[in-house]
Amino acid sequence: MKPSRSNSWSDPDRRLELALRAAASVSGCVVLLIVLFVLWQALPALRDIGLPRFVADADWRPTSDTQPQFGMLPMLAGSGLVTLGAVLLATPLAVFSAVLVEFYVPRSVAWLLRRLLELLNGVPSVVFGFWGLVVVVPLINAWQPPGQSLLAGVLVLSLMLIPTIALSAAVALRDDAGDLARSAAALGLDRGAVVWSLAVPRASRGIGGGVLLGAARAVGETMAVVIVCGNIVQVPASLFDPVRTITANIAMEMSYATAGHRSVLFATGLLLILVTGFLVAASRLLSRRGARA
């Protein structure tokens, strides 16, 4: 259904096509612009300070006049640990509930659970963070002070990831393994065996894609972690220590950052884009090949 190329410029269809193509091109360029502008702002830091110092510097003292230090290790550890913990906690819960939704409950209950997961997905991250601050943090504080900690971040963030992972897993179980599982059930094979030796292995790529998508969301999450994690710049020694993530660091310091400090924060923003972009691209490739197999 392509418009004929011989049409003149005055043809309204041709003009419409051009206008729409322009809109599509603009939409396609937004992500490129984001990368370019963030890179542009990060260049001074990458050039003058250099990547090695981000991990080699012992401290994070970006505003010091005499000897500024740009050691990002505590923030890298914070983001990495919060993400890892949240994914490890959310994945089993999400996969088991997806198995329940696809194979164990009547359609009405499955419908209800799926809708609930979608609603959970729509809860603002600042509300998750606030709930974490007034409910989860005091509970942890009563057990192991101070409460605002890596653990609080992991708990709140895992709740936020569950819908992403569970909905992807449910789609993968239905699309990649639904027919086979039904045939197997018709042959009288036991449901538990069908789930674990047939459905889950066949859907594993799609489930893996969902987990990567969840990880991308966790790395980029800002509001919930900035509110519940305590934001102290340190490599945590235990689950109960406060941590600061890369995203929280940007949110907390950008408002007063100038010159070199500001550029460093943009460089960490660039790192966030690269990591989430890589995770999402990997997720797409993984799920797509799974669907084709």
Binding site: V31, G220, I250, M254, I273, G277
Partner: peptide
């Protein structure tokens, strides 16, 4: 293909990075 991939990647950009981009541009 390029537009689809770039929209997929756009959907993955963390919101704080959108904030940085909006601030500059």
């Amino acid at each position: 293909t390029a537009i689809r991939w770039s929209l997929d990647l756009l959907a993955s950009v963390p919101s704080i990075v959108f904030g940085l981009f909006g601030m500059v541009v």
